[in-house]
Design a protein around this nucleic acid. Structure first.
Lengths: 231, 231, 231, 231
DNA sequence: TATGAATGAGCGTTCATTCAT
DNA sequence: TATGAATGAACGCTCATTCAT
């Protein structure tokens, strides 16, 4: 339940003001106390996604939760640790899903389509986490950036191997560089999370996946049209 | 007491563009014994009184308190907010006291004398606050200056109405302008706070009240001597 | 290239912007170059009067003049020096005028009325200077504050001596303290400069002088009404 | 003589209350060789690109330049103003180039390829500016974000209109949404700036343009292969 | 006579973090 | 599990002042 209580002009009371205007949503749980940790990192994801890591303060996170800034430190050791947590959750499962697809029996082009769809799926289910991973992971301290980086590379590897396989079996053009192709596909996929929500609503699920498929088609050999050289 | 402070209304995570904090005024009661907070605004009053608002730094206030300058911001949201707090306390009760007197049964001249005495009384009990109100309220940001200004006007109104009543019932000269008379009486009263301490010690409570009473007498009709030109 | 920036993208361009709104006044002389110094201290007086010494920046002064901040230092050695200049001009002549009146032949009550009128006269002719003297002289560095203080004391002395004379010759009540009476009269006179302009327009010249005369009347012995004791 | 000329927003000496500086946007031309200014915004671009707007401090910028941090403010009015300057330069010319291409005689697919190439070209010549525009423009204050936003929309409009033209003349599939296609193309293009430098070296100018061209091919109708579901 | 460029000092404020409770 | 109180560090910014020109 959400409770709006009155209190003082002091900073620490920020979360319980007597507001005159329509109150805004605050994330507060009164059931299932062991879920509290989830809520806290959820709030962090939300705030980091909205304002960027450096643009967000721990106070902002506390505000969303209706708790005091200091209390956050019961749940994470530092702001950077919170960022790593959010980023980690933002790629959680991506690599495994990709590997499962690559291990499957589809032809390379089919695999690529599936990889794209799988890569975009979490945009719908954990938007904020994915957005933070994409936009903010660069601000992680070296150690954890490397940890997260390993996951990124696993994902990229899967895309790249599929493209290589496509070139090898002749289903994709041989005039492309697999590495740059992979970067392009992922670049497009990752751009989606920053689209306006309305655009994204169309993209996530199906549409964007299909546009990505167009890219796969672009790579396909049975496309009569040749790229102009040296453009 | 009632205090207006700035505070954050966190806007629900919207996608980019990033929203900024646009703090809103909040009505906050601090009736419970926030002892430390009292000390802090006391120190602010002292320092503002001594050096003027712009001449005083928050560091000066912190020095008086023996705490770090940054720690002040736990107690007030901004230097300007501290000024408003001090100013508000500097006029607190003035208007109410004046209204009580005006509502009483004394004749206008008696009321005027009482108004003057009541107006000067706080000079003894909360010197710094009154001094800051008188000398520094002009540096308040527009919004709070207006709030404080409303109180000033209530006080002025009471003085003016009593003078009008005195003119109406014939106990005061009809050749004076009530508005200017009010300004003069208050001008003199408010000057006292800036006197040298030794002079003030005599003024506050009795002496200054007596001089002010002389002024009241100056306004009285039963004074034989007439001012020179066409007043 | 064309650039939109807040205020000025280049600080030094402040004085030559392309403004879209109705232009505001700037004090610029194109004749009599040797008068420039006058204009500069005039601008300082204006700005100090409006914003207070500490609330005003040298940039503010430069803005009024349409010149660069650094150029001011050709005319005065420091901001404090400018303040002293303005303050000095704010009391210039006051003491002499008062002394001339006191040396005259009027009876004490007449002298007091003349002193008041003379004291208020400069409010009309050099408002800003007087206002700065009254409100800001406390911020002068010790040395110059003492210099200016000597003038103040001369003025006060004249008022006080006249009151003493009035008491001595029986034309003023003997139950008043001449020192406090002097402070009261000057307190009222000095308050006028801070009144709203509309009020002041009435005060300066005649009305306020006449109210001050009321105070002299209040001090006069031929007033039947006695002050209540111990109010 | 006194001349009232247009300029600075100084408010003519009003009596208290004190007026504040309320700076207004001002149009300033800096066509003359403000060399140092160029260096300063170059440094800002570099630092913002490297660490992100909020991750970079003005001290960081000053360090790059070997000057004191305070001195920066001689060249720009605020950190935000510097960001806007950098962002503005990051898109400068993009819209015009795009419009020139669209106004040309090429068929839609050819125009699209040219648009892509033109859009990527500045990546090589003003990397930092473009990167800041793409990654950090969301942190601009509302007013300037809108100004910059107008340019973005012009660019997007050109891409979208070309795609619409392609659909209209049958050279591009009619089963695609022009808006999403535009977003995808630009999403991919804009991703390039964040690639590792080694990858980018290949992309900028030719390679990435070629991959983007592949995407254009993906959009072309003469591609036999159809995307799976109901596109 | 005035300016462009720069600076050192300091200011108000924010922020991540700590710690006793 | 959470908070009130406080802090050190740094941040963006302003300001009076200097100085070569």
């Amino acid at each position: 339940m959400i409770v709006w209580s009155k209190s003082a002009s002091f900073r620490h009371c920020r979360a319980s003001p007597v507001t005159k205007h329509t109150p805004r949503a605050r994330l507060v749980s009164n059931s299932r106390p062991f879920r509290r940790a989830e809520e806290i990192i959820d709030a962090a994801a939300r705030v980091f996604a909205e304002r960027g890591y450096h643009g967000a303060s721990t106070q902002d996170i506390a505000d969303v939760l209706g708790m005091r800034q200091a209390s956050l430190y019961y749940y994470f050791a530092s702001k950077e640790a919170a960022l790593e947590l959010v980023c980690a959750r933002g790629v959680e499962g991506h690599a495994e899903a990709a590997e499962a697809i690559v291990a499957g029996l589809d032809p390379p082009l089919g695999k690529l389509a599936k990889l794209i769809a799988a890569h975009l799926a979490p945009n719908a289910t954990k938007r904020d986490y994915v957005k933070v991973f994409i936009n903010e992971r660069r601000y992680l301290p070296t150690a954890s950036r490397r940890r997260i980086g390993r996951v990124s590379r696993r994902i990229e590897g899967n895309f790249e191997r599929v493209i290589q396989a496509g070139i090898a079996d002749g289903s994709m053009r041989r005039d492309i560089d697999p590495h740059l192709a992979m970067l392009s596909v992922l670049g497009l996929c990752n751009a989606v999370i920053n689209w306006r929500r309305a655009d994204q609503a169309m993209a996530v699920d199906s549409i964007a996946a299909q546009f990505a498929t167009l890219l796969a088609d672009g790579l396909a050999t049975n496309c009569k049209r040749r790229p102009r050289k040296g453009l």
